[in-house]
Amino acid sequence: MSSAPPTGPGPQEPPGPAAAPAPPVADADPTRPPHPYTEVQRSAEFGELRRDHRAFAFPLTLAFVLWYLGYVLLSSYAGGFMAVKVAGNVNVALVLGVAQFLTTFLIAWWYSRHAARRLDPKAEAIRNRLEGAA
């Protein structure tokens, strides 16, 4: 408990005026000290972990869903373009289809690298501290 990250003096929103110095959230059972999850959630360290995950995963999800839908729309409404031959009998439609496979593999690899480098060490540090304190 003592090693839990101190919450800075920055803007907080204590749930009740009386709860300020005590553990931050009044649980249903006031006799049991609440797990310091709320404190961790508000810590700068966790904020960074959350941002690193969201700033990577959310835009990328939007991007690959749009890329997929774009490909579907091209297949439905741009037949002429999709029929253009690229090499032998291979046309644009097939190339873009195979490109969907390649981007999927690529994004999976990219996310995994990001997670191993940026997310795992932070998650592990927070977890160790919380579990060590419990």
């Binding site: 749930p15 959230v25 649980d27 609440p34 797990h35 999850y37 709320t38 961790v40 959630q41 966790f46 972990l49 959350r50 995950h53 997310l119 998650a123 592990e124 927070i126 977890r127 919380l130 579990e131 419990a134």
Partner: peptide, 17 residues
């Protein structure tokens, strides 16, 4: 339930518990 969300969010991102 803000406390429960704190618990879920921290656990889901860190694997605590």
């Amino acid at each position: 339930d803000a406390a429960k969300y704190a618990e879920l969010e921290v656990r889901s991102l860190t694997g605590t518990g």
